[in-house]
């Protein structure tokens, strides 16, 4: 028994050695800073240092729930993320399948690059691209499209009703390329004999996609969705702060937990309260991931993360 175990470890030794650098990085970068969670429960005084600063219990968390905006920011954060969680994979899978159908190699490579491009652009640049489209007096939409149609220009940055759509479109445009590449890689890895077998059985192209490609993508979809659920209480700060140009009238639909914390603490510079918000977000995310994983493992055990 012992010998068997030894043999097993010996066999995997190179793999364990290869893990060391990555694990060291994770421990230093992700586990050690976890001790900083205590900042969320303290009133930090730099003269006393983190450890000696007084404990104030949950006082730092209060501001997140006391405000009349608490509901709005939670609603915005969660509902935008839910929409992203559904739409991004839908678009990404569609594009990945289409990419796979392209036979010309050079065209395929070109499309891949173009699709990934928005993901690599800084959000600040994106915010100016959006501004170039939406600016009241110089923007492309007001100047070239609405004017040509004989319609009056819209003051985009003062009208909240358009922004749920604008945010979603921008987020999709920026984010789908990355997921497309992941799905595309999975599709490429599907054994071509499945397709041949299906073709011999007389499956049409559509049927092959529906009954071979999609089932093969299932575990990738579940993994990416589970990871997304873990971040459901976070929002892309740049997307919600920079893209609407921090415009006040839009805040009912653009204020999320992250931007709320940023705006509120800009003046007071209180790291205790900022950490409290971070702890709250991670705890909720962690709980959600565990729950979602539990549900997944009940339905299809093989696809659960753990």
């Amino acid at each position: 028994m012992v010998r068997k175990l030894k043999k097993k470890y010996y066999r995997y030794l190179p793999l364990y050695i290869m893990m060391i650098p990555g694990l060291t990085y994770l421990i230093i970068n992700n586990y050690i800073p976890m001790a900083g969670i205590i900042i969320a429960f303290k009133q930090i005084n730099y003269r006393l240092g983190i450890l000696k600063s007084p404990f104030i219990g949950l006082k730092n968390f209060k501001f997140l729930f006391q405000s009349s905006d608490a509901f709005v920011i939670t609603r915005n954060t969660i509902s935008y993320n839910l929409v992203f969680l559904i739409l991004t994979p839908a678009v990404a899978i569609m594009v990945a399948i289409l990419l796979n159908e392209i036979k010309n190699k050079r065209a395929k490579k070109t499309y891949q690059t173009i699709i990934l491009m928005p993901y690599l652009i800084s959000i600040i640049v994106v915010s100016y691209l959006v501004y170039a489209l939406l600016a009241s007096d110089t923007g492309y939409i007001n100047n070239s499209i609405l004017e040509a149609l004989g319609k009056e220009g819209i003051s985009w940055y003062s009208n909240a009703k358009y922004w749920p759509f604008i945010i979603v479109i921008v987020a999709l445009w920026k984010g789908f390329g990355y997921q497309t590449i992941i799905y595309f890689a999975t599709i490429v890895g599907i054994d071509s004999t499945y397709y041949e077998a299906a073709a011999i059985d007389g499956a049409t192209r559509g049927q092959r996609i529906l009954h071979v490609t999609l089932p093969a993508l299932k575990s990738t979809i579940i993994t990416l969705t589970l990871l997304g659920i873990g971040r459901i209480f976070y929002s892309d700060f740049g997307l919600f702060y920079q893209v609407p140009l921090n415009s006040g009238p839009l805040m009912d639909v653009t204020n999320t937990i992250d931007t709320y914390v940023y705006r509120g603490l800009l003046q007071s510079n209180n790291i205790g309260m900022a950490s409290a918000a971070g702890v709250y977000q991670s705890l909720v995310g962690f709980a959600l991931v565990l729950t979602a994983n539990l549900v997944v493992s009940k339905i299809s055990k093989d696809d659960a993360l753990f």
Binding site: N30, P33, M34, I37, D258, Y262, I271, A274, Q281, G285
Partner: peptide
């Protein structure tokens, strides 16, 4: 599975550790 668990945990933590520096001016 264990590795996957570790990775998930780390990803959550990575996001956590990035949060305390949001209060720049």
């Amino acid at each position: 599975r264990i590795i996957a668990l570790l990775v998930t945990g780390c990803m959550l933590l990575a996001s956590l550790s990035g949060c305390s520096s949001k209060t720049t001016e």
